[in-house]
């Protein structure tokens, strides 16, 4: 359950370490993000300053990959993770990083983020 103010770990190599959710881009009233939801995030901390593609304090689009909250899936099973993670995107919704050090859920395929699925370690 990602909402405004939630801190998320970044699993790609764009350079950001932790981001904070500023807005959940969905059309529901509750505006709570699950796996595969688009968010606008502000970068809180960086992994390394010199080679980073992103800047601290700037706003980016991001897609949620893992959530601590157990969520139902399309096939009826359930999934939960031990942390909240996201992957940064450009304004055109293409990935900023070139590698993802974490899992990507298959919900991303339904949202047509197929590029992310090919970059990740494992698709769950």
């Amino acid at each position: 359950m990602i909402q405004v103010g939630t801190n998320l770990d970044i699993t790609d190599n764009s350079g950001a370490r932790v981001v904070k959710c500023v807005k959940v881009l969905d059309k529901t009233k509750q505006s709570i993000g699950y796996t595969g939801t688009l968010c606008i995030v502000s970068v809180k901390s960086l992994i390394r300053k010199q080679k980073s593609k992103v800047k601290k304090g700037h706003l980016y689009k991001a897609v949620v990959c893992e959530t601590k909250k157990m969520g139902g899936r399309a096939d009826g099973s359930q999934m939960s993770c031990s942390r909240n993670t996201a992957v940064l995107l450009s304004p055109q919704q293409t990935p900023l990083g070139s590698r993802i050090q974490g899992i990507t859920p298959y919900e991303l395929r339904m949202k047509k983020h197929t590029k992310l699925l090919s970059l990740s370690l494992a698709n769950v």
Partner: peptide, 15 residues
């Protein structure tokens, strides 16, 4: 079988 059970992903991406 498909549609059954729970999946948990640990910090180090182990499923």
């Amino acid at each position: 079988y498909p549609g059954h059970g729970i999946c948990f992903v640990r910090n180090d991406s182990k499923v």
